[in-house]
Design a protein around this nucleic acid. Structure first.
Lengths: 208, 208
DNA sequence: CCTACCGATCGGTAGG
DNA sequence: CCTACCGATCGGTAGG
């Protein structure tokens, strides 16, 4: 078989050894599909073509993998907020950018997002609290964009920014429940449909 | 200690032995909090004040508990659809009733609903498929109410019933993520706030 | 990355 | 519902 002998390290079809990156990506896939507690290190090894015990040469433990996968998910969302806020424009423009960015993250990094949304409760306390904070900040970005729109008059008076931010994020987050990569809609199509619904929900000017 | 001797069965503070009902309710609590794979039969025994092995005198296995908890969650939602559809009235009335009923189920049976929404993927294949069907029917109830509203002219022309049903259910289902029993809002308050958002989203007549 | 393990815990059973 | 177990699997380690 292999030219390096019986004890050659397992490797992928191209012969390259696995990296920490491979391990984290595979962990994201399995955590998203089977859940953190439903995935064993041996399962993960099988996914990578190696033994479960071999994974420990890439990471310190199973927990570290959960932290790393979720940290990546959180980072994608943080980047969206940073970009959308820095771009300027009206509150309505900002909201549209936030939504489009969010949908792109879900569509482009579904495993990390699924793990982020479903498995964060199994994080060690310290990391779990950081994620809770991050979610609060994320929600606050939506709330403050809505408040700005209220000030501009581009969002209907009487809209409650707090609860409305929650509702908008509800629509966005539920995407992981129904999105299918083969569904024929791309990220920006989905974002446009969501925006049509949300714009009416907040009485955005010119929405109907 | 107990008057029935050293080998008296464990019982609650009132001295009553546990029933199958107690076991299923406790399982719902733990599955909702720690997840199905994060809950051991010994954990569940501790919650009930008995040994893990004693649970097998009430149920055949851990899996049966998952099926039973989720079956109950599904039943609550099915009852809402049956009641809301049978009550007559306009499509708008029906939608309002569906939403109010849904929120009441989440608020009143949060453990079963959480388990239903987060742990269904761990169900045995047969039961999992039944739940998928049930969800499709549930979504169809929203879709057909929206279609009826379109026909009545009480919902804005141009609204897509399929995607809109998904968005409305997104707002409803996300309630399990943010609802806190001590939050000062009761079920009907929450339902009214959701309806205000959704009614605008679908351009319900008189919504703004 | 593999071999060869470890102690702990898992779902579950027999018998009372 | 408890006692006393069972085989299987878990996360993880030492050493190469």
């Amino acid at each position: 078989m292999g030219s390096t002998g019986i004890h050659a390290p397992a490797a992928d079809a191209a012969g390259a050894p696995r990296t920490r990156e491979d391990v984290v990506l595979a962990a994201g896939r399995l955590f998203a599909q089977r859940g953190y507690h439903g995935t064993s290190m041996r399962d993960l090894g099988e996914e990578l073509g190696m033994l479960g015990s071999s994974i420990y040469s890439h990471v310190a433990g199973k927990n570290e993998l959960l932290v790393e996968v979720i940290r990546r998910g959180a980072e994608f969302f943080n980047e969206v907020v940073a970009t959308a806020s820095a771009a300027g424009g009206t509150a309505i423009d900002e909201l549209e950018r936030l939504i489009r960015g969010h949908v792109r993250v879900v569509v482009g990094h579904i495993d990390e997002v699924r793990t982020f949304l479903f498995e964060s409760r199994f994080l060690p306390e310290y990391d779990r609290l950081k994620i809770v904070e991050m979610r609060d900040d994320y929600e606050a970005a939506y709330r403050s964009a809505i408040e700005r729109g209220l000030g501009e008059g581009s969002i209907a008076a009487g809209v409650d920014p707090g609860i409305t931010a929650i509702f908008v994020l509800s629509v966005l987050n539920a995407l992981i429940r129904w999105y299918r990569p083969d569904g024929g809609r791309d990220a920006d199509d989905i974002a446009a449909e969501m925006w049509a619904f949300v714009a009416n929900g907040i009485g955005a000017e010119g929405s109907r």
